[in-house]
């Protein structure tokens, strides 16, 4: 770990992502600002809220036709918008990692899981083959895969969704990143597996002192997992609050979102629905 142990890891000020389309410009992200320390930050919103595009913009994975602008988009003092593609590539994987929703699409289907982890490690660090293999096995063990040596040689299609997502986390954490962006990392998983994976993620993040951005549509899940929550609507941040204070949310959107989900033991027929106000998006 190089830099300061405390303080800001990521600084985002007035981030905007714009897509040109046939019918004009579409602003997916419209002036998002936040900062991230070594903490768990949740970004919550519904589809089209710009939460995923925010994560992608930080990661540098925005499609080439989109325009990104920001007053500041800095990771550990490095201006990400001014960085060359090569510098960003070096950051990606080594110091910033990302986990996507479905491991089936983000793992290479024709390469064994173990080899993918080894390759990732060896692109970022100069290590020998034997050492890389040992570290990959250790990493697989760290994500609570019971038989690492066997899983090492399996291909992605041969493992279950939960196992695949664990392998994905192992691959992302092998180079020891300081920040991780997880975009709906557990949405494709069964509820019980979901909690296992979150438990692993939680332990690794706190053990290694990483900063985590957890992007999800599930307000309840995010608030039980993260320290701080950002609520996004129509490309903007409508509310930022501590996860523990979610019950005291001020914005009608946040409250509506919390209210409209059925809960065991709270009989409400019909369910309260969200009355979207145009001024929220203004």
């Amino acid at each position: 770990m190089s830099t300061q142990s405390k303080g800001t890891l990521l600084d985002v000020d007035d981030l905007r992502v714009t897509f040109p389309t046939r019918t004009g410009l579409i602003e997916a992200v419209r002036g998002v600002s936040f900062s991230l320390g070594r903490e768990r930050l949740g970004i919550v919103g519904e589809s089209g809220s710009g939460k995923s595009q925010t994560g992608r913009a930080i990661m540098g994975l925005t499609p080439p036709q989109a325009r990104i602008s920001a007053n500041k988009l800095a990771f550990d003092g490095i201006d990400l918008l001014a960085a060359s593609p090569r510098e960003r590539r070096a950051l990606r994987g080594k110091r910033i990692a990302m986990i996507l929703q479905d491991p089936k699409y983000s793992l290479d289907p024709v390469m064994s899981i173990g080899r993918q982890i080894v390759e990732t490690l060896r692109t970022h660090e100069k290590v020998g083959k034997a050492e890389a293999r040992d570290r990959a096995l250790a990493m697989l063990e760290a994500v609570q895969i019971r038989d690492p040596a066997r899983v090492f040689d399996l291909h992605p299609h041969e493992v279950s969704g939960g196992m695949g997502q664990r392998a994905m986390i192992a691959m992302m954490l092998i180079a020891g990143p300081e920040m991780m962006i997880a975009d709906e990392p557990t949405s494709a998983l069964d509820v019980t597996v979901q909690l296992d994976v979150l438990g692993i993620l939680d332990r690794l993040v706190s053990e290694r002192g990483m900063g985590l951005i957890f992007i999800s549509h599930d307000l309840r899940l995010v608030s039980s997992f993260c320290d701080r929550v950002i609520v996004m609507y129509a490309g903007k941040v409508v509310e930022q609050l501590k996860a523990s204070e979610l019950g005291r949310a001020q914005h009608p959107y946040t409250r509506g979102l919390l209210n409209c989900m059925p809960r065991i033991g709270f009989e409400r027929h019909p369910l309260p629905v969200l009355d979207r106000k145009p001024e929220w998006a203004a």
Binding site: L257, C260, M261, P270, L271, P272, V273, L274
Partner: peptide, 15 residues
Amino acid sequence: LDASVQAEVLNLLEE
């Protein structure tokens, strides 16, 4: 579906 839309559809089904 999104949570808010889910509520609307569940209400519709009940109705």
